[in-house]
Structures are given as C-alpha cells and as structure tokens.
Design a protein around this nucleic acid. Sequence first.
DNA 1: TTTTCTATCTATAAACC
DNA 2: TGGTTTATAGATAGAAA
Lengths: 228, 228
Amino acid sequence: MARKKVKLAWIANDSARRATFKKRKKGLMKKVSELSTLCGVEACAIIYGPEDPQPDVWPSSPSDAHSVLTRFKSMPEMEQSKKMMNQEGLLRQGISKVKEQLKKQQRENHNFELTQLMYRTLNGEALPDVGTEVLHALEGVIEEKMKAIQERIDGLRGTTSVTPILINRTGVKMEMEAIQRQKWLEAMMNNPPHEQQHQPAGYYGGGNEFANGVPYGDHTPWPNHFYH
Amino acid sequence: MARKKVKLAWIANDSARRATFKKRKKGLMKKVSELSTLCGVEACAIIYGPEDPQPDVWPSSPSDAHSVLTRFKSMPEMEQSKKMMNQEGLLRQGISKVKEQLKKQQRENHNFELTQLMYRTLNGEALPDVGTEVLHALEGVIEEKMKAIQERIDGLRGTTSVTPILINRTGVKMEMEAIQRQKWLEAMMNNPPHEQQHQPAGYYGGGNEFANGVPYGDHTPWPNHFYH
DNA sequence: TTTTCTATCTATAAACC
DNA sequence: TGGTTTATAGATAGAAA
C-alpha cells in the first residue's frame, strides 16, 4: 500500500511475500491490540506462518488468549456458526445490500431524468405528455433548485467583497417570480452540463444560449415511464 | 489516527467508542483477509462486541461474500452544482457496479441452493426432478467438497501433534470411496449450518442424525429453476 | 443513529544499505 | 536476509447532513 497499489492476490515472489508477511503481521497485531484497548473488547488473532507450526497469537499473555479461546470454544457450535458459517445469513445481508444499492441507483436515475426534463423544457423543448405524478416530481425538483439559487443569492447579498459575475449579469433585485427563462438558465447552469465554457465570449449575452446546441447535446427520447 | 491522534486508551464516550469499534473492526477484518490472501497463510480473528455474545470471526465460510460486499462502496454522491455533464457517466458507472454486485449475489445464491440440495439429498430426501444442468452443477459442488475434505485429511495425516476431534470421531484410515453418508455429513458439517449441536448426545453415534430435523430446519421447496 | 466527507494519521511497497 | 528510509496507499477521527 505504498509506492504502488498492490494487487490483492498471492504474492508469487518468495522473499517479497515473506517480507510482506512479516510487516503485515506486525501491523495486524498492533491493530488488534489497539481495538481491544480503545473499545475494551475481547479480541484475538491467530496467524500461522507459512512454515511455522506455531502461530503468532494476540494477546500474547497466555491467560488472556486462553480466555478468549475458551470462551469461543465453549460456546455451542451453533452460535459460532451463526456468524462465521451461516451462509444464509450472509446471503441475506448481501442481498439486502444489493437491493439497497439498486434503490439508491434508481432514485438517482429518476432524479437525473427529471433534471434533464427540466433543462430541456426550460430550453424551449415541448413538455412531453407526462403524467401528473411526473409533473409533481418535476415540481419538486424545480422547487429545490429555486431554493438552492435563492440561498446562494441571499448568501451573496451579505458579502461585500467579491461579487460573482452572475450577479452582475442578472441583477439580484429581480424577484424570483420574475426571473426569465434565460436567467434561470444562467443561474442553474452556473456549472453547465456541457462545454458551454468553450462557447464564444458573447455566450452569456442573453437570448438563446443553446442556439448552438442543447444542454445534453442531443434529444434523447424521454424515458417511457414519463408518459401516460 | 485522523484529524487528531488518538490516545491509546479506553474511549469513555459511549457513541464514539461504538463508532470506532465498528470502523476498526471492519478495517481489521479486511487486514486479516488481505494477509491471508497475499501471503497464503491461515489466519483467524475473533472479536467480541461489547454486548454481543457472538463474536465476529474471520474467516467466514463464504469469505468472499463478506469482504467483497463490505468493500463495496456506493458511488460518490453527485454534486449538482458541479459538472452536470458527468452525471450520465457517473450513473452508468453506478449501474454497472450494481449489476456486478447482483451477478455475484446470484452466483452465490445459486451455489447456496446447490449446497442445500446436496445436504438434503444426502440426508435421504428424494432428489427432486432437476434438469441435467443442475445435476452437473451439483456434481461440481460435491466434487469440490470432496476435494476439500481429502486435502484436509491428507494434511492431518502428516501431522503428529494435535489431532482434531473430528478425526477421533471418524477415523482417517477410511478410504474416501468407503465414506458413508453419515461420515460425509460429519465431515462436511464440521461446522454445521444449524442447530444440530442441540441434538441428543447420541447425535454422532451414526444412523439417521437428522431424524429429529433436517439440516436447515425446514423443507423449503426447491427453487423453481431447479426443475425441468 | 447512520452515512458521507475529508483532513490527518498510519501502514507499508519499494528503494536503499 | 534483515534493518532504515521515503513516497504513497489506506485507515480513520471528527464533523456535518
């Protein structure tokens, strides 16, 4: 884990492996002792060397080690197996984790699609014939954006030093209700989706900022579930 | 070891201690698995939680499942204010990660089901009318188990010191070809999936060990895809 | 409480001796 | 082969959401 990221696989080189073993064993033992000290828990580590039939063990104090091991051994095997051997449990754990990930991903996808919908609509594209549900969600997204912008503006008002270009261009006195489409675009696209930065200097002058291209570079059809 | 160097002593603050415990336990387990992988040695860690009578243990049988799944981190959250253009890319990345996880999980599920199939069949339950594909896969699982057992026995033969209880019970002289069903069960169930330990003392005496119950406690129907 | 973020601290792979 | 050094990967404390 230094100089180079090591691949997690058996180290073929003999001496390198032995060196690593030595270093890491030491580090591991230290970690075990730290965990035990810091959190006041019983812990035990047993490491068999490649040749040595006698493992390195922590805690080094024989009595402590013995106590941990005795406790472990005396426990009905059934309980031991619950955590170390119960495949079913681990599987369930894994499955719910994946499910969780999936849900998160789906939420993100949905949000992304809504954001795209917003940008494209603001850019003059016709709002597709989406269901009310989608409209409500879209409303939520837009509200969130507005809120974020308002906060940013409020924050800037209290500042006496740097006045961001954005403010010079749009004027903060404008009421939120009166913000026009291109102002919206300017505000929201403060960090624009694509290479707007590479647009000519006159880019921000007003008018149809995306005359040269749409925010996402193409007109991907709206996802099917957006429609009735 | 971050933000501030922590003093090596019992952490008095309750929630802080729990948080540290969780983090460090995870880190420790990872280290153990890494050491084991990189250097090809046997290693074991046992950690008792403050309350939990069940320790966390490494290795866990489906070792990959645990470490791989915990290692899996959700993709960094999208920063709306920055680089909208990357959203799509980030999403794709996240999706493929989830997909990958899902595949892994499915492989594990399948393997688990096959293992259950094996145990239940060995226990005398009728082999369901599975397709050839499943049969072949089952064959593979069984072969793997046999190989593992053979290796264990071979290893033990070369040892003059400690003779594990398992050996006392079964006798290593027995040829693999002659191993009977209950021996199989003993060997494979060395750390049994469920409550067999609570069986009467005569449990290991031979005969129908699972007369009072099946290994998994119930007769869950075989998964649909096992059948023709 | 959990999750996420990130500044810092620690472990360690290579290089050197 | 075994210590010492150094640059970097990894672990994690504390804060914030």
